[in-house]
Structure formats: C-alpha cells, structure tokens
Simulated scan of single mutants.
Amino acid sequence: MRYLAGTDSVHTTAAICDYLDDRATADDEVAVVSIAPPDDPAAERDSQEALNVAPVRLTAIGSVETHLREGEPAAELLAAAGESDADEIVIGAHGGSPKATADVGSTARAVLANAARPVVVVPVPDL
C-alpha cells in the first residue's frame, strides 16, 4: 500500500504516525509531504521539523520518504498523491498550530472535495 501523508506541523505528523502505526507494514510505502510558502523561513523551518518526525516514528514501515514543497497546500497534496500513485491520502483535520480549531480546516476540506482516491482525516490533539 502507498500512503501520502500531508503535514504542516510536528503535531500533525505525530497524529498521522499514530494512525499509520496501526495500519502500515514493512511492505508499505509512505511519502510525507509538507508545503511551505515561498520566502517564509519560519514556515520552511516548521515544515522541515514536521518532516523530520516521520522517519523516526515510522521505522517499521518499508519505505518512508519526505518532501518539502512550495505552493497552495491542497493543490500540492493532490499533485503529490498523483505523482506517487498513493492508495490513500492521510492528513490532519486542522493545522497543528495553537490557533487551530477543532473544525476541519480549509486544506482538509479542499483535499476531501477534490481527491480521486480515499482520504483519511486524523484528529490533531489540542495543544
């Protein structure tokens, strides 16, 4: 199985890893993608930190790759899912920032509305 995990924070990555821990196996592949706006060093740093969590947490998975991209998050996640031929997209319900709400965020809504493959939305714990 091929999973595409979309993240924007260490908290979102941790929630996605918790979900994958119960499902993914040594035969599976996980591509973890984080999208940072261009010319925003703080966002790029946060995205890179979010990506660093996955290989450490998903050591039992056959293959874990991380990718930092720029652009509009939903569009980039959908493009990455197509490029990797993902069987399933896994995203957080909302951003992992302290200002995030319990509601499904705009990126998750856009991915759900436009994905041509299954999408799993995992809850991100309140900080």
Rank of each mutant, 00 (worst) to 15 (best):
1 M>F: 06
2 R>Q: 12
3 Y>F: 15
3 Y>D: 02
5 A>R: 02
5 A>P: 03
6 G>F: 07
6 G>I: 03
9 S>T: 11
9 S>W: 06
10 V>K: 15
11 H>V: 00
12 T>W: 01
12 T>D: 14
13 T>Y: 02
14 A>T: 14
16 I>H: 00
17 C>V: 04
17 C>F: 10
18 D>K: 14
19 Y>P: 00
19 Y>C: 02
21 D>R: 09
21 D>C: 02
21 D>M: 05
22 D>H: 12
23 R>Q: 09
24 A>M: 00
24 A>V: 04
24 A>K: 01
25 T>M: 02
25 T>Y: 06
25 T>L: 02
26 A>V: 07
26 A>M: 01
27 D>G: 08
28 D>V: 01
28 D>R: 01
29 E>M: 05
30 V>M: 02
30 V>T: 03
34 S>K: 03
35 I>K: 03
36 A>N: 01
38 P>A: 13
38 P>M: 11
38 P>S: 14
39 D>Y: 14
39 D>M: 12
40 D>F: 05
40 D>C: 07
41 P>I: 10
41 P>Y: 10
41 P>R: 14
42 A>Q: 09
42 A>P: 00
45 R>C: 01
46 D>G: 09
46 D>C: 01
47 S>M: 04
47 S>V: 07
47 S>R: 05
48 Q>D: 07
49 E>Y: 06
50 A>M: 05
51 L>A: 12
52 N>R: 13
52 N>Y: 00
53 V>I: 13
53 V>G: 01
55 P>A: 03
56 V>N: 04
56 V>G: 05
57 R>Q: 13
58 L>G: 04
62 G>I: 10
62 G>Q: 05
62 G>W: 11
62 G>C: 05
62 G>K: 08
64 V>S: 00
64 V>Y: 12
65 E>T: 14
66 T>R: 08
67 H>G: 00
68 L>I: 11
69 R>Q: 13
69 R>D: 13
70 E>Y: 08
70 E>V: 07
71 G>P: 04
71 G>T: 03
71 G>E: 07
72 E>L: 06
74 A>R: 09
75 A>C: 01
75 A>Y: 06
75 A>S: 14
77 L>E: 09
78 L>A: 09
78 L>E: 08
79 A>M: 12
79 A>V: 06
81 A>L: 04
82 G>F: 10
83 E>S: 12
85 D>S: 13
85 D>G: 12
85 D>W: 00
89 I>G: 08
90 V>Y: 10
90 V>P: 08
91 I>W: 06
91 I>V: 15
92 G>K: 10
93 A>P: 04
93 A>E: 12
93 A>Q: 14
94 H>D: 15
96 G>F: 10
96 G>M: 10
98 P>G: 12
98 P>M: 13
99 K>I: 14
100 A>S: 15
100 A>N: 09
101 T>A: 11
103 D>I: 03
103 D>Q: 11
105 G>Y: 08
106 S>D: 15
107 T>G: 03
107 T>S: 10
109 R>W: 00
110 A>G: 01
110 A>W: 05
110 A>T: 11
111 V>R: 05
111 V>K: 03
112 L>I: 15
112 L>R: 04
112 L>N: 08
114 N>M: 06
114 N>T: 08
116 A>N: 11
118 P>I: 05
118 P>G: 08
119 V>N: 04
119 V>P: 04
120 V>N: 03
120 V>M: 03
121 V>H: 00
123 P>F: 00
123 P>H: 12
124 V>Y: 06
126 D>T: 15
